[in-house]
Computed example of a mutant assay.
Amino acid sequence: MNDTIKNELNNYGESIKQEVTLSIGYSIYLQDGQNNSDLLSIADKIMYKVKSIMKEVSLS
Protein backbone atom coordinates (compact mmCIF):
# COMPACT_ATOMS: atom_id res chain seq x y z
CA MET A 1 0.00 0.00 0.00
CA ASN A 2 1.19 3.47 -0.81
CA ASP A 3 2.77 5.29 2.19
CA THR A 4 0.54 8.33 1.64
CA ILE A 5 -2.59 6.18 1.87
CA LYS A 6 -1.26 4.41 4.99
CA ASN A 7 -0.56 7.74 6.67
CA GLU A 8 -4.00 9.09 5.79
CA LEU A 9 -5.71 5.98 7.15
CA ASN A 10 -3.67 6.11 10.36
CA ASN A 11 -4.49 9.79 10.87
CA TYR A 12 -8.17 9.18 10.13
CA GLY A 13 -8.37 6.49 12.79
CA GLU A 14 -6.81 8.78 15.38
CA SER A 15 -9.35 11.54 14.73
CA ILE A 16 -12.37 9.32 15.36
CA LYS A 17 -13.34 8.90 19.01
CA GLN A 18 -16.12 6.49 19.91
CA GLU A 19 -17.47 5.32 23.21
CA VAL A 20 -18.40 1.70 23.69
CA THR A 21 -20.57 0.47 26.51
CA LEU A 22 -21.56 -3.01 27.57
CA SER A 23 -24.88 -4.16 28.98
CA ILE A 24 -25.44 -7.65 30.28
CA GLY A 25 -28.61 -9.41 31.35
CA TYR A 26 -28.83 -12.80 32.96
CA SER A 27 -31.25 -15.63 33.51
CA ILE A 28 -31.05 -18.93 35.34
CA TYR A 29 -31.95 -22.18 33.61
CA LEU A 30 -35.01 -23.86 35.09
CA GLN A 31 -35.63 -21.01 37.53
CA ASP A 32 -36.34 -18.46 34.76
CA GLY A 33 -37.15 -20.75 31.85
CA GLN A 34 -36.51 -24.04 30.16
CA ASN A 35 -35.74 -22.93 26.61
CA ASN A 36 -33.50 -20.41 24.87
CA SER A 37 -36.33 -18.10 23.97
CA ASP A 38 -37.58 -17.76 27.54
CA LEU A 39 -34.08 -17.41 28.97
CA LEU A 40 -33.10 -14.71 26.45
CA SER A 41 -36.35 -12.86 27.07
CA ILE A 42 -35.79 -12.80 30.83
CA ALA A 43 -32.13 -11.77 30.40
CA ASP A 44 -33.21 -8.95 28.09
CA LYS A 45 -35.83 -7.70 30.57
CA ILE A 46 -33.32 -7.76 33.41
CA MET A 47 -30.75 -5.89 31.32
CA TYR A 48 -33.19 -3.09 30.51
CA LYS A 49 -34.41 -2.93 34.11
CA VAL A 50 -30.85 -2.46 35.38
CA LYS A 51 -30.12 0.13 32.67
CA SER A 52 -33.23 2.05 33.72
CA ILE A 53 -32.23 1.96 37.39
CA MET A 54 -28.68 3.07 36.58
CA LYS A 55 -30.00 5.93 34.46
CA GLU A 56 -32.20 7.12 37.36
CA VAL A 57 -29.25 6.89 39.76
CA SER A 58 -27.00 8.90 37.45
CA LEU A 59 -29.65 11.62 37.11
CA SER A 60 -29.92 12.02 40.90
Rank of each mutant, 00 (worst) to 15 (best):
Y12K: 06
S27I: 07
L59Y: 03
Q31C: 00
S15E: 15
S41H: 06
N11Q: 12
E14Y: 10
N7G: 04
L59S: 12
Y29H: 08
G33A: 06
E19D: 09
Q34V: 05
M1S: 12
N2A: 11
S60A: 09
D44V: 01
V57A: 11
I16V: 15
L39I: 04
I24Q: 15
V50H: 11
L39C: 02
Q34A: 09
D44C: 10
N35Y: 09
V20C: 04
N11D: 12
S52T: 13
I53W: 02
Y26H: 12
I24G: 08
S58D: 04
I24Y: 08
D32C: 02
E19W: 06
D32Y: 01
N7E: 15
I53Q: 05
I46T: 09
N11Y: 01
L22G: 08
L59K: 13
N35R: 01
K6V: 14
Q31T: 05
K51S: 12
M54I: 09
Q18V: 14
K55F: 04
S27Y: 10
L30G: 00
E8W: 03
S23N: 15
K6Q: 07
S27M: 10
I53Y: 08
D32A: 01
Y12Q: 08
I42E: 03
D44P: 01
S27V: 03
I16K: 06
S60C: 05
Y48G: 08
G13L: 09
S60K: 13
N35A: 05
L30C: 07
D38K: 13
A43R: 03
K45V: 07
I46F: 02
S58E: 05
N7W: 04
E56D: 15
V50P: 01
Y48F: 15
Y29A: 14
K49V: 00
Y12F: 13
D38L: 14
D44R: 08
I53A: 03
V50N: 15
N2F: 13
I53C: 00
D44W: 00
Q31F: 02
S41K: 11
K45I: 10
I5S: 14
Y26K: 08
L30W: 06
Q31P: 00
